[in-house]
Simulated scan of single mutants.
Amino acid sequence: MRAFPLNRDSIDLLVTAACITTTAHRSDAVAADIVITADALGQLLWDENHSSVSFATGEHITAPRYDWQPVAEIIPTADGEQLLQIERTRLLFEEVSCHHDGWDYSTAGAVMEALRAEISTRLAGRSLVSSSDNLGVLEYDGLSRAAEMWDRTIGFRYPLEAGTAA
C-alpha cells in the first residue's frame, strides 16, 4: 500500500483532462466559470489524496490551497501519448488516494472513473500488452513510457521513431 501526496502538476494534469472531457470546455462556456469549476475539482482531488495519506500514516495532513494551472499542451484535446500520461497519472492518483473510508463512494472516485471511461474510449484502438511492472496485468501499449509522477519539466514522452532520430 502506497499513500503519498501527489504533486500539484499531476493534479493540474488530471483536472485539465477532466475539464476537456466534459462540457466545461465548450466554446460558449464562460472562462471564469471553468476556472472556478477547475479550482474546486482540483481542491477536491487534492483533499481526497491528503485524506488517504492521513488515514494511511495516522497523521492529519491538510492539502494546500489549490489554484488550477491548466496544462496547455492537452487543450483542446490530448493526443495518444498525452492520453497515456493522463492514464498513468490517473492510476497513480487512485492507488495513493483510495485508502480511507468513503473513497468507494467519493466524488473524486467518480471523477476518476469518468476519466478512465473517456481514456478507454479514446485509446480503444491501442494494443494491450503485458505490464512490465505488474505480473498478469494488461496495459495500453506505451503506458510504461509515461512518468509515474508527472510534472511540467518532464513533459510528455514520445517514442523515438527512425525518421526523428538524428
Rank of each mutant, 00 (worst) to 15 (best):
W68D: 05
R26Y: 09
A38H: 11
V53Y: 15
A29F: 13
A56Y: 14
R65P: 08
A29W: 09
G42N: 09
H60S: 11
R26T: 15
Q69N: 13
H50M: 09
A31C: 06
A31G: 08
L44W: 07
V71M: 10
F55H: 14
D33S: 00
A31I: 03
V53L: 13
I34E: 00
I61M: 13
I61W: 10
D28Q: 01
T57Y: 02
A63C: 15
V30A: 01
A29E: 02
S54D: 00
A32P: 08
D33C: 00
P64G: 12
D28W: 03
E48W: 03
D39P: 13
D47F: 06
P64L: 14
D47Q: 05
H60Q: 06
A31K: 10
E48S: 05
P64H: 13
I34H: 03
S27H: 12
L41R: 01
D39Q: 04
N49H: 09
A29T: 05
R65T: 11
A56F: 15
A38Y: 10
N49K: 07
A38F: 06
D39E: 01
P64Y: 12
A31P: 13
G58T: 02
A72Q: 07
P64A: 09
S52Y: 08
W68Q: 06
F55G: 12
L41W: 04
E48N: 07
G58F: 04
A56E: 02
L41H: 01
D47E: 05
V30C: 00
S27Q: 05
G58C: 03
V53F: 11
T62D: 03
A29Q: 05
H50Q: 10
S54Y: 00
S27P: 08
W46Y: 04
V35M: 03
Q69G: 14
V30S: 02
T57G: 07
D28E: 02
V30N: 01
H60K: 10
W46M: 02
A31V: 11
D47R: 04
Q69R: 15
T57W: 03
N49F: 02
V30T: 02
P64I: 06
A72N: 15
T62Y: 15
I36P: 03
T57F: 06
D33K: 02
A56G: 15
Y66K: 12
G58W: 05
Y66R: 11
T62C: 15
H60M: 08
D67H: 14
L44E: 08
T62N: 11
E59C: 14
R65F: 13
S52M: 05
R26E: 09
G42Q: 12
I61E: 04
W46T: 03
H25W: 09
V35E: 01
E59P: 13
E48T: 05
A72F: 05
N49Y: 02
T57P: 04
D47P: 10
D28F: 03
H60Y: 09
A24T: 07
Q69P: 13
S51W: 09
Y66I: 05
Q69F: 11
H50A: 10
H50F: 12
I34M: 02
D28K: 02
N49M: 00
D67S: 15
A72I: 15
L44V: 12
H60G: 11
A38I: 11
S52E: 00
P64F: 08
A63G: 13
D67R: 13
T57I: 09
D33G: 01
H50C: 13
A56R: 09
S54N: 01
